[in-house]
Amino acid sequence: MAHRVTLIPGDGIGPEITAAARLVLEASGAPLEWEVVEAGEKVIPEFGTPLPPHVLESIRRNRVALKGPLTTPIGHGFRSVNVALRQELDLYACVRPAQTLPGIKTRYEHVDLIVVRENTEDLYAGIEHKVGKDAAESIKIVTREASTRIVRFAFELARREKRKKVTAVHKANIMKFTDGLFLACAREVAAAYPDIAFEEMIVDAMCMKLVQAPENYDVIVTLNLYGDIISDLAAGLVGGLGVAPGANIGDAAAVFEPVHGSAPKHAGQDKVNPLATILSGVMLLKHLGLNEAAERVFKGVTAVLREGKVLTYDLGGNARTSEMAAAIAAQIA
């Protein structure tokens, strides 16, 4: 049976890298049917919004989407399209793997970790206001419900991926009520997973230890702000945002996308590295239970990287986006 997937090409370089990912995923033999819908800056003249209702309806109907990067206009009153998607679809878990790949220049050799970030609250809830003319205040929201479900999500992911350890990252030594609540929930959930090791780490120490010895970490679960920072740090360990896939997952839908932005200055040049989007496609296949197809795609990616002959400029080569995608598809075939 074919799986119907919403495909949002996106802005800037989005159409090129999603086309590359589509070519590669189809080469895997995965039974996918694409429903292409447009969102972002380009649709504002037609719909008056970067996120038209029919886009959300498509994702709700298909329950899974592959999305290119979207541009949120500055100074036009539109909120972030990515934040709006997460809120409208209750995509409460942001999942960002970081894995060392052959041929990618980095100082680290054995990184293979996943950052799980709570997506709905914390300081990113955006509840802030001015206090007089010379001060401002932002309110940090942490709830038992959201903390419990994100930690449980992390443990279930660890069990499914055969991971051995979950690390809960916090600042409860200072923020005893908010981060303290998150940590208490993490301890309660961890007790139900005796087969998976559990540890606690203060966020500043976590950043230091990730730089010192990232191979010691497996699944990291944390609050919204810390997760945003740590996931970019983790991407830096393995070569940068160009090789950083991501997903925003809820109980009723999941949206897979590269971590990097729309890079409008490179749009239409067929030169940008498509790996982050292709690897997001690997995550999508695994989410659908198409593990063999996911493995074929990942092996195709690593084969092309190891060979080193068809790489885009940022990876040390001179191949076009479409050429690198075609080379990966050929390896799969």
Results as ranks from 00 to 15, higher is better:
N173C: 01
A191Q: 13
A213Q: 14
I202S: 07
D251T: 15
T167F: 05
L233I: 14
K165W: 07
G239N: 05
I202F: 15
M175W: 14
Y226V: 11
T222S: 07
H170D: 02
P214I: 08
M201V: 02
A186Q: 03
N248C: 10
K176C: 04
L181F: 05
K209Q: 15
V221W: 09
N216G: 00
D179M: 06
D204E: 08
N224R: 08
A205N: 15
A186C: 06
D232M: 12
L210V: 03
Y226E: 00
G246K: 05
I230F: 05
G227A: 12
I249T: 06
V243P: 02
N173D: 03
L241G: 09
M201I: 01
I220L: 14
L225C: 02
D232P: 09
A192R: 15
V219N: 01
A191K: 13
A253F: 07
D218E: 07
A205C: 04
A254Q: 13
K164M: 01
A213R: 13
L210I: 02
G180P: 11
A254Y: 13
A234V: 09
A197Y: 03
I249N: 05
K164S: 09
G240H: 03
K165T: 12
K209P: 09
G239A: 11
V243R: 03
F198R: 02
V189L: 10
A186L: 05
A191T: 12
V169P: 13
A172W: 05
V169I: 15
G246I: 04
S231H: 12
L225H: 10
S231Y: 14
L210W: 07
A252D: 15
M206G: 03
F182I: 02
R187H: 12
L210F: 05
F198G: 01
I249R: 15
A235L: 11
Q212C: 12
E199C: 01
M206D: 02
L225W: 11
A253G: 08
A192E: 15
L183C: 05
L233Q: 15
L233T: 06
F177A: 10
A213C: 10
T178W: 07
G240W: 00
